[in-house]
Design a protein around this nucleic acid. Structure first.
Lengths: 341, 341
DNA sequence: GAGCTAAATGTAAACGTTGACATTGGTTGT
DNA sequence: ACAACCAATGTCAACGTTTACATTTAGCTC
């Protein structure tokens, strides 16, 4: 049997194009042509012979060999800050799906919001020579700046590339979203407002804060009267800040959270202190995690179309000269009003 | 400047080990030795020269070249059925973390529980020549059987390898878990029991069902009186079955769900019909998603240590002869009793 | 100082694939 | 009959890295 033979000769390694060529008495070039669908210049019965030989040997082309020859892999690297965050998971899944359609594979790495880890992962990514590198929630690190000058396509999601770097961006209009939340809270007559936002280093957090405070100011309220807290984007952090805020002499009556996770934590803190929502405290989240529909049907939040991010990124990657293009895809958001405001 | 020179010569491609060798006037062998930490047989000042040249050129070794030479990549492929499921996300994240420590990268693919898609992805995975292939919730497909005979390490999570295949397995004792849930419900005096389980094709679902019914029978109840429903493991499916069950003339008074997602759906259906939990209906989930602590603090469920799966899988991958070894890692589960029972 | 050893470095082949170019043999046009 | 062409297939180099083996050099010993 051919299979045994090849296995033997290759010392346990998978069969190569040479094995297939020998098995069907043709050259490697012809085998390659057939297997890559260049059937135009191959006789039909020859093609058939190749296909049968490949099948009987259980041949699968080596992506390594192909990549080396073409000096290009079919891999895209995605860096996320936290996969347990629903939003990240949705983006990751939608990107993987979109890439699958184009025959690309996705390497997923978790930066855990740690700059050093991001740099380590960027180095690993670089050595993979991927088709592109996608950063969800990028941090401004030395290696990022260094690598951004490369020809390799970089795409930023949710947080814009740090200033000197020019690269495509996919996200929403965070400033407008911040304004929308402020407008909503003001319209409902809420005062005593607090905002628990993400790291100021991130363009997304900054823009939301800016939009939010801007709208507040327009309404004639002193933005300085708004309690501003910089926080990690986790339930635990939200819960901690919630307890602290609610134990103040004059606790806030409305809180705008950097994401839904924080909002969950705040909600828990409010419940524990017997503060009613929205009567005693209004809460607004951000992202509208898919699970909200089932488990947090009370949460007013900004719906971000996470599953649309993947296709948008994939199509940017397929464009020519993606690297140099400073294109932007701004996706629509939507204020989802529920009972927490 | 060296950088410009190399860039020019390579026509925009990243610098290679040859560029570095030329830049420091040494051979590629020496460069390779230094960069791979074989410092033992290289003079210290020579090593320094190499390192500086590499740095000034911005050299990053190509994983492709290395892989080709060593006919082995540093990639592990993980196939999951649904990344929006918290449990899958936790496993994926913990595996990625564990692999990172060993310098491995993780390619993540979504099978969406579709057999054809799993087979397509398995073919892609094979061509990547990964260090190992990890299947979370594997389906029994032709290609899986074919590939399992390969020397390449396969590891099964949560669902055992389909019978003829021998491969390492990481999971919990599903039968015991099923028994534990039954014991708990019986102890609380619940009758009129239903079970909404995952696909019967999967060993995990089957074992749970078996353990559950076994324990019921031991209690003197006819297992045939238990309503059994095979279902997809999603909130939507749970909600649908919940509505149907609760609209029956004699609705069940206790439901054991295949995972927490289904339980969320059931809960919603119960709320909508005004059925109290656990008074009118007891609900038990499975997995204990991390978000439960915050958003579903009412759900009695089996806690599966998702974040321990990654390290367990990683250590199996690092063992020698992983492929042939039929090892098993059975992780502990825990019945988390909350107010839904 | 010849002979030996060990340290430091160099040489070259191999990994699997593809595609530019070369070759073969047959067919058409004049 | 000869050139020109076309279709089908083959040859071979290149992609970037690592490593077995070869070579050089310096430091010893007797």
């Amino acid at each position: 049997m051919g299979l045994g033979e090849a296995t033997l000769r290759n010392h346990g390694r998978p069969p190569t194009v040479i094995d297939v060529a020998e098995a069907c008495g043709l050259s490697t070039a012809t085998v390659s042509r057939v297997l890559n669908g260049l059937v135009a210049s191959v006789a039909p019965e020859t093609a058939q012979r190749v296909i049968e030989a490949a099948r009987s040997l259980g041949y699968t082309p080596s992506a390594i060999g192909r990549s080396l020859r073409q000096s290009e892999t079919r891999i895209v690297v995605l860096l996320v800050p936290d996969l347990t965050n629903d939003f990240c998971a949705d983006v990751a899944m939608s990107l993987e799906k979109a890439l699958q359609l184009g025959g690309l594979s996705m390497v997923l790495c978790n930066t855990a919001e740690k700059p050093e880890q991001q740099d380590r992962l960027l180095a690993d990514a670089e050595s993979l020579r991927p088709r592109g590198i996608v950063l969800l929630g990028a941090m401004d690190t030395p290696r990022l700046r260094a690598m951004a000058q490369t020809a390799r396509p970089f795409i930023f999601i949710n947080r814009r590339p740090p200033p000197p770097i020019k690269a495509p961006y996919v996200g929403i209009d965070n400033k407008a979203a911040g304004r929308a939340v402020a407008a909503h809270l003001l319209e409902r007559g809420h005062t005593g407002i607090a905002i628990i936002h993400g790291p100021r280093k991130n363009s997304a957090s900054r823009s939301r804060l800016e939009g939010f405070l801007g709208r507040i100011a327009e309404h004639g309220i002193d933005p300085a009267s708004v309690i501003q807290i910089e926080s990690a984007l986790t339930t635990e952090a939200g819960y901690g800040h919630g307890r602290e805020l609610l134990s103040r002499g004059q606790p806030p009556r409305a809180i705008f959270c950097g994401n839904d996770m924080i909002a969950y934590g705040i909600y828990r803190a409010a419940q524990e202190r017997g503060v009613s929502v929205p009567g005693g405290l209004a809460i607004v989240g951000f992202d509208d995690n898919g699970i909200n529909a089932w488990l947090a049907p009370w949460l007013t939040t900004i719906r971000v179309p996470a599953v649309d991010f993947g296709p948008a990124v994939a199509s940017l990657l397929n464009e020519k000269n993606t690297a140099r293009r400073e294109s932007e895809v701004i996706l629509p958001f939507e204020l989802t009003v529920r009972s927490s405001t």
